[in-house]
């Protein structure tokens, strides 16, 4: 009877997330786009790279679902493949920023003396406009998928660091950390066993937002030519190439734009839902 109760507790977070219809919608969108990215080679009707001059600038029709671009490439296939690049960049950025942000955030939050140094460096990074900083880093490293991801990780790490640091500061002052200290626990143990697990909630939520930012920023980088170089399709560079034909062939920009918007929307909805579901204050 009592053990059932504890299972109920674990289920509660999921239940709360489930009741949040917007979060579920967000989750569904993400899953759909993820599926598209994985299945792109199987569901694309054409090769995204093959040029076909005869069918240039076709508006959406039954043959080319999203129409074609200035080289006559099938836009539907390109958008499907583009999901792979965008999501890959997103995942890499989330991975790097979470790792670095957690590391710096834990150190800055826990050790007062290092706090000042680390946070001033982070502030310096944050004081640059996001895209400008990204472009400069890519410019130094040369444009590629991986370098765009690295540049964006540098851009977004300070934000994650700030979030982790503030969580650490709050948890560090809590009584259970004092209790661990009074038991004779070392700093290392306190950080690893007591502070880190309690930082995970804000970190997870932040990660969904970073993912959304990264997808968006990758598009912006590609748009200005600092992303993965053509002809490889990413949502950003499809948009960027279609820009000059926006009056005559608006579908080239519209479709990747819709997918970017959908992904960001899905991630933001999920992030909001997760924040509510994981908030321990909502428990009762």
């Amino acid at each position: 009877m009592k053990s059932q109760k504890s299972k109920l507790g674990e289920n509660k977070k999921w239940q709360r997330l489930k009741r949040n219809k917007m979060a579920i919608a967000g989750l569904l969108i993400i899953c759909a786009i993820l599926l598209i990215a994985i299945l792109a080679p199987y569901i694309s009707p054409y090769d995204p790279l093959v040029l076909n001059i005869r069918s240039r600038f076709q508006s959406p029709n039954s043959e080319f679902l999203f129409g074609t671009d200035n080289y006559g490439r099938d836009l539907f296939s390109r958008v499907l493949y583009g999901a792979r690049v965008s999501l890959k960049v997103g995942v890499i950025v989330v991975f790097i920023t979470s790792a670095l942000g957690t590391f710096f955030g834990l150190i800055a939050g826990y050790f007062r003396k290092l706090d000042y140094v680390i946070m001033r460096v982070m502030d310096a990074f944050m004081s640059f406009p996001t895209i400008l900083l990204g472009i400069s880093i890519v410019a130094i490293l040369s444009p590629s998928e991986m370098n765009a991801a690295i540049a964006l990780s540098v851009v977004y790490t300070p934000r994650t660091t700030r979030i982790v640091r503030s969580a650490v500061l709050e948890i560090k002052g809590s009584e259970f950390v004092r209790a661990a200290k009074s038991l004779g626990a070392s700093d290392f143990r306190i950080i690893l066993k007591h502070i880190l697990p309690n930082c995970l909630t804000p970190l997870i939520v932040q990660s969904t937002f970073v993912f959304a930012y990264a997808v968006l920023a990758e598009a912006s980088l590609s748009f200005v030519g600092a992303g993965p170089p053509p002809p490889a399709p990413s949502w950003g560079n499809i948009l960027s190439e279609g820009r000059q034909y926006i009056r005559t062939a608006p579908w080239i920009t519209i479709f990747p734009g819709i997918f970017i918007a959908l992904t960001v929307l899905g991630l933001n909805l999920t992030g909001d839902g997760l924040r509510d579901a994981l908030d321990p204050k909502m428990k009762k």
């Binding site: 009584e175 259970f176 004092r178 209790a179 661990a180 009074s182 038991l183 066993k193 309690n198």
Partner: peptide, 23 residues
């Protein structure tokens, strides 16, 4: 000091805040 804490312990006021919620 860490060794001393084997001999000297503390019980806190707030039974909610003094236990790590994730352990």
């Amino acid at each position: 000091i860490r060794g001393m804490r084997r001999d000297m312990q503390i019980i806190f006021q707030d039974p909610y805040a003094s236990l790590n919620p994730r352990m």
